Structure formats: C-alpha cells, structure tokens
Simulated assay, not measured.
Amino acid sequence: MTPVNRAEWLETFDARVRRRARPDSTRARVEDTGAVVRQVAGPDGWNGVLWSGLGDDAAEVIAAQRDHFAALGVECEWKLYGHDLPADLPRLLTEAGFVPEPTETVMVAATADVAAAPVLPPGVVLVPVTDAEGVERAARLHARVFGVDPGGLRKRLLRRLAEAPGTEVAVMAEAAEGPVSVARLECDGDGFAGLWGGATLPHWRGRGLYRALVAHRAGRAAAAGVGYLYVDARDTSRPILARLGFQALTTTTPFVWRP
C-alpha cells in the first residue's frame, strides 16, 4: 500500500483536482477568478465552486458567486472541504443562503494498489454502458436505488456519449433479474480519476459487487495511465474502501444554493 503523507497529498489533490479542474463536458467551462475556481455548465449541468482561497473578504466573495449563478438562473454547489479556510466558512455559506448536505470522506489510493481482476458472485457479469439503451437502464437502476429523478444523470451520460461515441460512461453488474449495480469512472483531474455512483439494489448488497466495480474501474484508470483514485465516500462505503487500500484524506460537504 502506498503510504499517504496527508499534507503532501492534500496539496497535490488541491492543485490537480480542484485548481486545475477540467470541465466535465464540452458544454461546461471552468473559470479561475483568483479567489475561486468554478464550473459553469448551464441548467443541464453541474454548476458550482470547486476551490476557494478566501481571506478577510470571504463573505463578499461568497455573495458574488451566489449572485453570479443567480444571474444565470441555475442552482450552484459550493464544494467545501474540511481543510478549507477560513475556519468559519460553513457559517458564512449558510448566512449567504447555502444549505449543507451530508458530509462525506474523501478517500484516496494509488491506482496500482487497487487495480485487480474483478471477483463477481456466480451468475453476475459486468456490462459496460456504451450506448443510449445502456444509459437508460443505468438511469432507471440509479432511480430505484436512490429514489431520485435520474434525469440529470441521464443527460450527463448521454452528453458524454455524444462527445465520444462508444465510450464506457458507466459499468453495470447484471444478474438474471437484470442490472443490480452501477458505477462510473471520471478522469477529472491531472493524474487523478474519481469513482462515482456505486448504486446497488438492497438485496444485492454485501455480495462483493461494490468491490468488483471498484476493481474494474481501477483497471480502466491504470490502462489510461491515471496514477491516483479518489472517492467521496459515504459512511457505508468507507470501510470497504479502506479494506481495498484507500486512505482518508479530508472531508467534503456540498453547500447548495437554489434560486
């Protein structure tokens, strides 16, 4: 297992994933204002602040970002990390009208420590999502697991397919009853890739599907030359990731403002 020097990894993570963030589609753009790095993607994409370097004018900068997205008519997310300054940033965001959602743990690992041949339960196969039909099946499964409208995910995956036809935009584990788990890999940083999704039907949990999907995506990342993986982990997945070699780096809390 590659040891984590937390200070060095935080510096690298901030520099590569946050400060040099890549747009998540050709319709999005990343803007560096000096005080913040933000993505602007319009009503069908993710809009928000990825990094901030705030000082005494923090309240003014926060209000300016809120007003910027308000003028565009879109909701925005301020992605707050546990080591971000100033220390009272959560209070300042709340006072500006941003609402916090559940905190997750940022887990990191060297790709080489995680990549392995997926081990699946009997009768289960991995199926790459590479076309519109696969996207629809993945979106329906996501809705079943999380009980939310999958419209945003559907649009995001279809947009990625339109930009790069035939690309594996997600991977599903399929059993005789159909898709039972789905997850995504996104190479959204310089040398880093994010693992997203991890939606598994309740009666299929605890059978190794999450581990298999992590191994598959780590293998894809390794083949693409990506050196590091990260996950915004919920409490349910954090112990599994720790057993696979991921280590806790910091926390992240979405603060969301809606028009």
Rank of each mutant, 00 (worst) to 15 (best):
L120N: 04
P121K: 11
P121L: 09
P121V: 07
P121F: 10
P122M: 02
G123N: 10
G123P: 09
V124N: 02
V124Y: 05
V125H: 13
V125G: 11
L126R: 08
L126W: 04
V127F: 04
P128E: 08
P128K: 06
V129Y: 10
V129T: 08
V129G: 05
D131P: 00
D131Y: 02
A132H: 12
A132Q: 13
E133H: 14
E133T: 15
E133A: 15
E133D: 15
G134Y: 06
G134F: 10
G134L: 01
G134T: 11
V135M: 05
V135C: 07
V135F: 10
V135H: 05
E136H: 13
E136T: 14
E136A: 15
E136W: 06
R137L: 14
R137C: 08
A139K: 00
R140T: 13
R140I: 06
L141Y: 07
H142M: 12
H142A: 14
H142Q: 11
A143I: 06
A143M: 09
R144A: 15
R144I: 02
R144Y: 05
R144G: 02
F146E: 11
F146G: 00
F146Y: 15
F146N: 09
F146H: 13
G147S: 02
G147M: 03
G147W: 05
V148M: 12
V148T: 14
V148G: 01
D149F: 09
P150F: 02
G151K: 05
L153Y: 03
L153G: 10
L153F: 03
R154Q: 13
R154E: 13
R154M: 07
K155E: 12
K155G: 13
R156W: 12
L157D: 01
L158D: 12
L158W: 03
L158A: 01
R159M: 00
R159H: 08
R159S: 12
R159V: 00
R160D: 11
R160F: 02
R160T: 11
L161V: 03
L161R: 03
L161S: 03
A162T: 09
A162D: 15
A162K: 12
E163L: 09
E163P: 07
A164I: 00
A164R: 15
A164H: 14
P165G: 04
G166W: 07
G166M: 00
T167G: 04
T167M: 06
T167W: 03
T167F: 04
T167I: 08
E168V: 14
E168A: 13
E168Y: 11
E168D: 14
V169P: 03
V169Q: 01
A170Y: 09
A170W: 09
V171G: 04
V171K: 04
M172K: 06
M172E: 11
A173C: 10
A173G: 11
A173P: 03
A173H: 09
E174M: 12
E174N: 11
E174C: 14
E174P: 05
A176P: 07
A176D: 15
A176Y: 02
